[in-house]
Protein backbone atom coordinates (compact mmCIF):
# COMPACT_ATOMS: atom_id res chain seq x y z
CA UNK A 1 0.00 0.00 0.00
CA UNK A 2 1.52 3.32 -0.94
CA UNK A 3 1.78 6.13 1.59
CA UNK A 4 -1.01 8.17 0.04
CA UNK A 5 -3.41 5.27 0.15
CA UNK A 6 -2.33 4.42 3.69
CA UNK A 7 -3.03 7.96 4.74
CA UNK A 8 -6.51 7.89 3.34
CA UNK A 9 -7.42 4.61 4.93
CA UNK A 10 -5.99 5.12 8.38
CA UNK A 11 -8.80 4.71 10.82
CA UNK A 12 -9.35 4.87 14.52
CA UNK A 13 -8.91 1.09 14.58
CA UNK A 14 -5.52 1.40 12.85
CA UNK A 15 -4.62 4.07 15.33
CA UNK A 16 -5.43 1.81 18.27
CA UNK A 17 -3.55 -1.04 16.65
CA UNK A 18 -0.58 1.28 16.28
CA UNK A 19 -0.82 2.02 19.98
CA UNK A 20 -0.89 -1.68 20.81
CA UNK A 21 2.23 -2.33 18.75
CA UNK A 22 3.92 0.52 20.57
CA UNK A 23 3.01 -1.04 23.89
CA UNK A 24 4.30 -4.44 22.84
CA UNK A 25 7.60 -2.85 21.83
CA UNK A 26 7.91 -1.39 25.30
CA UNK A 27 7.93 -4.69 27.07
CA UNK A 28 11.05 -5.69 25.16
CA UNK A 29 12.66 -3.12 27.42
CA UNK A 30 14.49 -0.17 25.98
CA UNK A 31 14.91 1.56 29.22
CA UNK A 32 14.41 -1.48 31.35
CA UNK A 33 11.14 -1.10 33.08
CA UNK A 34 10.35 -2.59 36.42
CA UNK A 35 8.70 -5.98 36.17
CA UNK A 36 10.40 -6.70 32.84
CA UNK A 37 12.52 -9.82 32.95
CA UNK A 38 16.12 -8.63 33.14
CA UNK A 39 18.27 -10.25 30.50
CA UNK A 40 21.52 -11.36 32.05
CA UNK A 41 23.58 -10.04 29.16
CA UNK A 42 21.42 -7.91 26.90
CA UNK A 43 23.00 -7.14 23.55
CA UNK A 44 25.00 -3.95 23.64
CA UNK A 45 24.45 -3.50 27.36
CA UNK A 46 26.56 -0.79 28.90
CA UNK A 47 27.20 -1.68 32.52
CA UNK A 48 28.34 0.75 35.17
CA UNK A 49 29.28 0.13 38.76
CA UNK A 50 27.24 2.57 40.82
CA UNK A 51 26.68 3.27 44.50
CA UNK A 52 23.30 4.57 45.55
CA UNK A 53 22.47 5.99 48.95
CA UNK A 54 19.04 4.73 49.81
CA UNK A 55 17.39 5.24 53.17
CA UNK A 56 20.78 6.09 54.65
CA UNK A 57 22.51 2.91 53.45
CA UNK A 58 24.94 2.58 50.54
CA UNK A 59 24.14 0.00 47.88
CA UNK A 60 26.74 -0.82 45.24
CA UNK A 61 25.69 -2.69 42.14
CA UNK A 62 26.57 -3.40 38.52
CA UNK A 63 23.83 -1.56 36.68
CA UNK A 64 22.83 -1.47 33.04
CA UNK A 65 22.78 2.21 32.05
CA UNK A 66 19.23 1.71 30.83
CA UNK A 67 17.89 0.82 34.26
CA UNK A 68 15.59 3.32 35.86
CA UNK A 69 15.85 4.01 39.57
CA UNK A 70 12.45 2.34 39.96
CA UNK A 71 13.71 -0.85 38.33
CA UNK A 72 16.78 -0.86 40.57
CA UNK A 73 14.74 -0.27 43.73
CA UNK A 74 12.16 -2.95 43.01
CA UNK A 75 13.90 -5.61 40.99
CA UNK A 76 17.53 -5.32 42.06
CA UNK A 77 17.23 -4.28 45.70
CA UNK A 78 13.83 -5.70 46.64
CA UNK A 79 12.51 -2.34 47.80
CA UNK A 80 9.00 -2.76 46.42
CA UNK A 81 7.43 0.12 48.36
CA UNK A 82 7.76 2.40 45.34
CA UNK A 83 5.01 1.08 43.08
CA UNK A 84 5.14 0.61 39.35
CA UNK A 85 1.98 2.03 37.83
CA UNK A 86 2.38 3.64 34.42
CA UNK A 87 6.21 3.50 34.38
CA UNK A 88 6.19 6.65 32.30
CA UNK A 89 5.81 9.66 34.60
CA UNK A 90 2.04 9.72 34.43
CA UNK A 91 0.70 8.31 37.70
CA UNK A 92 2.96 9.14 40.66
CA UNK A 93 2.87 5.68 42.28
CA UNK A 94 6.68 5.45 42.17
CA UNK A 95 7.29 8.80 43.89
CA UNK A 96 10.39 8.80 46.09
CA UNK A 97 12.27 11.67 47.72
CA UNK A 98 15.59 12.56 46.09
CA UNK A 99 17.54 15.16 48.05
CA UNK A 100 14.24 15.92 49.79
CA UNK A 101 12.23 16.48 46.63
CA UNK A 102 9.44 14.18 45.46
CA UNK A 103 10.43 12.76 42.06
CA UNK A 104 9.19 9.90 39.88
CA UNK A 105 11.63 6.99 40.25
CA UNK A 106 10.56 5.75 36.81
CA UNK A 107 11.81 8.98 35.23
CA UNK A 108 15.26 8.91 36.86
CA UNK A 109 18.07 6.81 35.43
CA UNK A 110 19.94 4.81 38.06
CA UNK A 111 23.20 5.95 36.51
CA UNK A 112 22.22 9.57 37.26
CA UNK A 113 21.38 8.90 40.92
CA UNK A 114 24.76 8.33 42.68
CA UNK A 115 25.62 11.05 45.17
CA UNK A 116 22.00 11.81 45.93
CA UNK A 117 20.01 11.00 49.06
CA UNK A 118 17.18 8.69 48.10
CA UNK A 119 14.34 8.09 50.53
CA UNK A 120 11.73 5.42 49.84
CA UNK A 121 8.70 4.56 51.92
CA UNK A 122 10.71 1.77 53.57
CA UNK A 123 13.01 4.38 55.12
CA UNK A 124 10.35 6.67 56.53
CA UNK A 125 9.35 5.00 59.80
CA UNK A 126 11.79 4.85 62.70
CA UNK A 127 11.71 1.18 63.60
CA UNK A 128 8.14 0.47 64.71
CA UNK A 129 7.31 4.14 65.03
CA UNK A 130 5.46 5.46 61.99
CA UNK A 131 6.26 8.85 60.54
CA UNK A 132 3.52 11.40 61.40
CA UNK A 133 2.35 11.41 57.76
CA UNK A 134 2.05 7.62 57.79
CA UNK A 135 0.24 7.70 61.13
CA UNK A 136 -2.20 10.30 59.82
CA UNK A 137 -2.92 8.24 56.68
CA UNK A 138 -3.71 5.24 58.92
CA UNK A 139 -5.94 7.19 61.30
CA UNK A 140 -7.83 9.08 58.61
CA UNK A 141 -7.95 6.04 56.32
CA UNK A 142 -6.35 8.07 53.54
CA UNK A 143 -6.49 5.18 51.09
CA UNK A 144 -8.73 2.52 49.66
CA UNK A 145 -6.69 -0.11 47.80
CA UNK A 146 -3.48 1.68 48.94
CA UNK A 147 -1.49 1.14 45.74
CA UNK A 148 -0.91 4.90 45.44
CA UNK A 149 -0.27 5.36 49.18
CA UNK A 150 3.56 5.17 49.33
CA UNK A 151 3.79 7.79 46.59
CA UNK A 152 1.07 9.92 48.19
CA UNK A 153 2.80 9.82 51.57
CA UNK A 154 6.19 10.81 50.13
CA UNK A 155 4.63 13.61 48.07
CA UNK A 156 2.88 14.79 51.23
CA UNK A 157 6.14 14.66 53.20
CA UNK A 158 7.88 16.68 50.47
CA UNK A 159 5.07 19.23 50.58
CA UNK A 160 5.02 19.53 54.39
CA UNK A 161 8.82 19.85 54.55
CA UNK A 162 8.69 22.96 52.38
CA UNK A 163 5.28 24.24 53.52
CA UNK A 164 4.41 23.08 57.06
CA UNK A 165 1.08 24.89 57.10
CA UNK A 166 -0.52 24.17 53.74
CA UNK A 167 -4.01 25.34 52.81
CA UNK A 168 -6.33 22.82 51.20
CA UNK A 169 -5.42 24.34 47.82
CA UNK A 170 -1.72 23.90 48.64
CA UNK A 171 -2.37 20.24 49.46
CA UNK A 172 -4.34 19.66 46.26
CA UNK A 173 -1.58 21.29 44.22
CA UNK A 174 1.15 19.53 46.16
CA UNK A 175 -0.43 16.13 45.44
CA UNK A 176 -1.45 16.94 41.86
CA UNK A 177 1.25 14.59 40.59
CA UNK A 178 -0.18 11.50 42.29
CA UNK A 179 -3.25 9.74 40.97
CA UNK A 180 -5.53 7.64 43.15
CA UNK A 181 -7.44 5.16 41.03
CA UNK A 182 -9.94 4.60 43.86
CA UNK A 183 -10.49 8.38 44.07
CA UNK A 184 -9.95 8.43 47.82
CA UNK A 185 -8.88 12.05 47.48
CA UNK A 186 -11.12 13.58 50.19
CA UNK A 187 -9.66 11.27 52.83
CA UNK A 188 -6.14 11.72 51.47
CA UNK A 189 -6.50 15.48 51.82
CA UNK A 190 -7.89 15.01 55.33
CA UNK A 191 -4.90 12.81 56.18
CA UNK A 192 -2.39 15.41 54.98
CA UNK A 193 -4.23 18.12 56.92
CA UNK A 194 -4.08 15.94 60.03
CA UNK A 195 -0.39 15.19 59.40
CA UNK A 196 0.41 18.92 59.27
CA UNK A 197 -1.30 19.40 62.65
CA UNK A 198 0.44 16.35 64.08
CA UNK A 199 3.87 17.62 63.00
CA UNK A 200 3.16 21.14 64.31
CA UNK A 201 2.13 19.90 67.76
Amino acid sequence: MDEKRKRLTISRRDFLKGGAIGTAALSSGLLLRSGVEAQSAPPGAKISRITLKINGAAHTLEADNRWTLLYILRDQLGLTGAKQGCDGGQCGACTVLIDGKPLYACMVLGIAAPGKEILTIEGLAKGEELHPVQQAFVEEMGYQCAFCTPGMILSAKGLLDRNPKPSETDIRQGLAGNLCRCAAYPKIIRAVTAAAKRIAS
Binding site: F15, G18, G19, I21, G22, A25, G89, G92, T95, K101, P102, L103, Y104, M107, V108, S155, G158, L159, Q173, G174, A176, G177
Partner: peptide, 29 residues
Protein backbone atom coordinates in the same frame (compact mmCIF):
# COMPACT_ATOMS: atom_id res chain seq x y z
CA UNK B 1 3.47 22.92 33.95
CA UNK B 2 2.91 19.20 34.60
CA UNK B 3 3.19 18.19 38.29
CA UNK B 4 5.36 19.06 41.31
CA UNK B 5 7.50 15.96 40.66
CA UNK B 6 8.10 16.79 37.01
CA UNK B 7 8.68 20.48 37.74
CA UNK B 8 11.35 19.52 40.29
CA UNK B 9 13.21 17.55 37.62
CA UNK B 10 12.41 19.36 34.37
CA UNK B 11 14.68 22.23 33.37
CA UNK B 12 13.96 25.46 31.55
CA UNK B 13 16.35 24.48 28.76
CA UNK B 14 14.75 21.08 28.37
CA UNK B 15 11.29 22.61 28.43
CA UNK B 16 12.19 24.80 25.44
CA UNK B 17 13.81 21.89 23.60
CA UNK B 18 11.14 19.26 24.33
CA UNK B 19 9.74 17.31 21.41
CA UNK B 20 6.08 17.47 20.37
CA UNK B 21 3.32 15.45 21.99
CA UNK B 22 1.59 14.58 18.71
CA UNK B 23 0.33 11.01 19.12
CA UNK B 24 1.50 10.03 15.66
CA UNK B 25 4.99 11.27 16.46
CA UNK B 26 4.93 9.54 19.87
CA UNK B 27 3.25 6.45 18.49
CA UNK B 28 4.28 3.78 16.05
CA UNK B 29 3.83 5.88 12.92
Amino acid sequence: VATPQLRAQATIGGNLCQRPRCWYYRGDF
